[in-house]
């Protein structure tokens, strides 16, 4: 794992409980933004594909622990969202905001549908019209709005954190200093 990937994952893991707190305090659960899923997409976008998968899983697990219901459902969903974001990044122009928005939309959609399916398979049935109207569509729209600021914040903080990471090269040490 290079310092950049490590920093991105560390920043995302630090931000995750904070994001959940913000969601809980300042936004309605239904119809509000899914910041944690947005973070998973950011991690997928900024990290190597094989690090994005476990990082997304841990982010989802944090949500599962906070929610304390159906442990693992969001972990799998966010792992897949991060993975999809990493795949999309490798195919599209990584510097374009539109590419990030497409990744966010796709990742959020995949995460929501996977969660819905897992919950249904566990006997927790959420009516399709309600899921589409009140869960998926607001999340998808929020993801489009959030991905830009989230990506910027995570990238900036990760760059700052990467300077703290030990580096073997002289350049790296100089950067750290």
């Amino acid at each position: 794992m290079n310092p950049r990937d490590g920093s991105v994952i560390a920043v995302a893991l630090v931000l995750a409980p904070l994001a959940k707190t913000v969601e809980f305090v300042a936004a309605p659960a239904v119809g509000g933004p899914d910041i944690l899923a947005g973070l998973a997409v950011c991690v997928g976008w900024l990290c190597d594909l094989w690090y994005a998968l476990p990082a997304g899983f841990v982010l989802g697990l944090i949500e599962d622990v906070v929610t304390a219901r159906c442990l693992g459902s969001r972990a799998i969903a966010l792992a897949l969202a991060a993975l999809l974001a990493a795949v999309i990044k490798s195919v599209l122009n990584p510097d374009s905001l539109s590419s990030k928005m497409l990744a966010a939309l796709s990742g959020m959609t995949l995460a929501d549908f996977v969660t819905w399916g897992i919950l249904a398979s566990r006997g927790i049935r959420i009516a399709a019209p309600y899921f589409l109207r009140s869960i998926w569509i607001p999340s998808a729209l929020w993801s489009l709005a959030l991905i830009g600021p989230l990506h910027f914040a995570v990238k900036r903080m990760a760059l700052g954190a990467a300077n703290v990471w030990p580096s073997s090269g002289r350049k790296g040490r100089e950067a750290a200093l």
Binding site: V30, R69, S73
Partner: peptide
């Protein structure tokens, strides 16, 4: 004093 932090429950 609080609501479910998840959109699923």
């Amino acid at each position: 004093y609080g609501r479910d932090p998840s959109k699923w429950f």
